[in-house]
C-alpha cells in the first residue's frame, strides 16, 4: 500500500469517526432556559436559566419550595452530570413541539439562543428530553428549590 493510500484511509477513518459523533455536541449552547408550566393540580411552576459557569437562575412561581428568584451554583458533579445529558440534546434537530393533545399534563419548554422545544411528557417525546428534565428536577430538589 502506497503512502498516499494509507493517508487516504486514515483520512476516511477520521471523517467517519467525526461523523458518528455528530449527535453529541462539542460546544454546548449556554445559557439554556427551562420552564415548567402549570397543570390541573399543584404541579411546580418555575423557570430556570442555566449559565455556562454552572450558575442557575431560578424563579419559583407556584407550588415550589422556594418562591421568587434565587441563584444557585451547582456543584461540579451536578453540573457535569447535567452537561452530560444536555450534550445529547440537539434542539435544532428536534421538532418545536411534541404532541400537545394531552390535556392537563404540565408543559416543559427548553430554550437556548437559537432553538426551543416544548413538550408534555409522554411516549412520543425523545427520551433525552425526559432524562434532562428528570435530572434537573432531582438537582433542584436537592438544592431545596422544588
Amino acid at each position: 500500500m502506497g503512502r498516499k493510500n494509507q493517508m487516504m484511509i486514515y483520512g476516511l477513518l477520521l471523517i467517519m469517526l467525526t461523523n458518528s459523533c455528530t449527535s453529541v455536541q462539542s460546544v454546548l449552547p449556554f445559557p439554556v432556559s427551562v420552564s415548567k408550566e402549570a397543570c390541573k393540580g399543584k404541579c411546580p411552576v418555575y423557570k430556570i436559566i442555566i449559565l455556562k459557569s454552572g450558575e442557575v437562575d431560578f424563579e419559583g412561581v407556584k407550588n415550589t419550595k422556594h418562591t421568587g428568584r434565587s441563584k444557585v451554583l451547582l456543584s461540579k458533579k451536578e453540573f457535569q452530570e447535567l452537561k452530560q445529558v444536555y450534550k445529547t440534546i440537539d434542539l435544532s434537530k428536534l421538532k418545536n413541539s411534541y404532541d400537545q393533545r394531552i390535556y392537563d399534563l404540565p408543559q416543559t419548554v427548553i430554550k437556548n439562543s437559537n432553538n426551543s422545544v416544548s413538550f408534555k411528557r409522554n411516549q412520543s417525546v425523545p427520551i433525552e428530553l425526559i432524562k434532562f428534565v428528570e435530572l434537573l428536577d432531582e438537582i433542584l430538589k436537592k438544592n431545596n428549590l422544588l
Partner: peptide, 13 residues
Amino acid sequence: SSGLGGYVYNTTG
C-alpha cells in the same frame, strides 16, 4: 407530591 391532578386525551390520534 407530583402535583399532577389528572389528564385526558383521545387515544385514536
